[in-house]
């Protein structure tokens, strides 16, 4: 039987994503790929498979699907309410779906959620990747009745979980300076780092606009900047003075002044912040930023060592009660996970 997933219902912003297409910048095509690449790496780790396989990204909406055959899945990124045939499944965990099982995901507080499948989604590879790049016209949002073929699953253990890097409550985003940072006065840069921001409701995979109380930000004088390469994480100050943080599907060149660039390891914190969360910026020196990125890369390489079984003997779980209350997604008897 064909291993596939049938989409029964899909809200807006549900797409197939992987690590994106690096290497096409010279042709004007940005890398794209998952808004939260850390969540992709986490899902790959949970399923013990390569992290370049494609998964489903859900941008704060909902998804209902059915597995045609027994299928391993993992759920990562922004937590959602997950039901398998009506029974709750723990988020940040791997599970086994039986043939014909219905998976319903809803109740996102915002941010980006991911469903990973053993073997990954076998969508067509275009220019080296399977991810939808909506701005470039590659791929499209998923819709009801879509059928997604799965790749061969090498198999492995399910019922594993881990504690994700905290990033679902806003917080501080670290920046490095850009060639244009000094076009903003010291006073303006200081005000920028002292201002709490919130995410604007207008957002997509190209960028996230931020809003704050008080006046917008600007450079001194009407500087015109020759259009040059821009990178994901760049914080453009557009005409209205609001910061606009460029994300994976951004344009490749631009001429707006950029006050700083968010560290790649902090972008998951931005994209996963709920709508009402407070976000702040702080500048770090480049050597420190490079060291932080190297640390994060090493931490991701070691994710596997952080996995633990979802099924735990209650006698070994002094935090059992807290675990249930905090997650809000399991009943006591669900700690056994789905039967395999």
């Amino acid at each position: 039987m064909i291993r596939e997933i049938v989409v029964h219902r899909a809200g807006p912003g549900v797409t197939i994503q992987d690590m994106g297409r690096a290497g096409w910048l010279a042709q004007g095509l940005s890398r794209g790929g998952a808004a939260d690449r850390l969540a992709l790496a986490e899902g790959a780790t949970l399923l013990n498979q390569p992290d370049d396989l494609a998964a489903i990204e859900i941008a704060g909406s909902f998804l209902g699907l059915e597995a045609s055959t027994p299928t391993r899945i993992a759920l990562t990124g922004a937590p959602m309410r997950a039901l398998c045939n009506g029974d709750p499944l723990a988020w940040q965990s791997s599970h086994a779906l039986q043939a014909g099982a219905r998976l319903e995901l809803s109740g996102s507080a915002g941010g980006y959620s991911y469903v990973h499948f053993g073997g990954g989604i076998a969508a067509d590879v275009i220019l080296g990747a399977r991810s939808a790049h909506l701005a470039a016209g590659l791929g499209q949002m998923l819709e009801a009745q879509d059928k997604l073929a799965l790749g061969a699953d090498s198999g492995g253990r399910v019922g594993m979980t881990f504690t994700p890097l905290p990033r679902f409550d806003g917080g501080t985003l670290r920046l490095v300076e850009t060639p244009q940072t000094r076009l903003f006065s010291q006073a303006e840069r200081t005000r920028f780092t002292q201002t709490p921001f919130r995410k604007d409701a207008r957002a997509n995979r190209m960028g996230q606009r931020l809003v704050a109380e008080g006046a917008g930000f600007g450079t001194d004088g009407g500087l015109s900047i020759l259009s040059e390469t821009i990178v994901a994480g760049d914080v453009q100050i557009t005409g209205d003075g609001a910061p606009f943080v460029l994300l994976s599907e951004c344009q490749t060149t631009g001429g707006y002044p950029r006050i700083g660039t968010v560290l790649p390891c902090d972008l998951p914190r931005l994209v996963q912040a709920p709508a009402n969360a407070s976000l702040r910026f702080t500048f770090v020196p480049l050597p420190e930023a490079a060291a932080l990125e190297r640390l994060e890369a090493a931490r991701r390489d070691a994710l596997r060592s952080k996995l633990r079984p979802l099924i735990r003997n209650p006698h070994d779980m002094p935090d059992l009660l807290a675990y249930q209350l905090v997650s809000g997604m399991t009943r006591g008897d669900e700690l056994e996970g789905p039967s395999t």
Partner: peptide
């Protein structure tokens, strides 16, 4: 990776392979 814009060249590098 390298690319050009109107009057500049961009390059991206692997932080684990070389330092600034």
């Amino acid at each position: 990776e390298t690319s050009t814009s109107l009057a500049s060249v961009y390059l991206r590098f692997d932080l684990r392979a070389v330092d600034h």
